[in-house]
Amino acid sequence: MPFRPTVLIALLFASMAPSTPHAGEWAKLAEDGVHDPKGPAIGLLQQPGDALPNLPGDTAGNQVHWIKALRTGVIQPRPNLDPAREDRRLDKDIYLDLYGSMPSVRFPHLAHTEWLDCTNCHDHLFLPKRGANNISMFLILQGQQCGVCHGAVAFPLTECSRCHSVPNNQAQRIVAAIEAEEAKRSAADGDKAAAPTTNSESPSKTPTDGGKAKTK
């Protein structure tokens, strides 16, 4: 049988691959450059390497896929301290950047509202209206807009294709369909009342949410 170097190379790479999907290791607190290795807490605080390898892996940030960790129930972080406080969710995708040189952006409200409250982004970072926000990578890379979290605590800005994830023509079709439905609905609602203003405090009452808003 002829020798196949590609097999050897494949085996070599396979043997190097870490057994978990994590890209690397977590520094020990004493070696992380922010904790004082001589401080009394160093032996008491939980080490990232004790907690994070048990969560679904990722290749960036904390090397944890936080959305997967949440949705698989591996972690069950509290949504509130005051049980009377509503844990608001919105299941509505927004398509952005439909004509750029990169694929279009799909912004999933659901993944964001599973962690965040509406008021974390609305209205001081983003007006709740498509086309009203002048979103720019220049600002994002400086820590504005999406960059308030992405690049600091949420997955970093090296992960272009996680946001720029939909071919432009497909996103254009989806947005055209959404706009057609909105036009039909506003024609049906027509003269009943003047169009109510959007209100980020009550996503379930926002007329442009496609009727999918829900709280949990």
Partner: peptide, 16 residues
Amino acid sequence: HWFHRIRFRCKVCHAE
């Protein structure tokens, strides 16, 4: 942040 987000969603500290 990693330690806290295992236990709490962002909205607890950043909204509540």
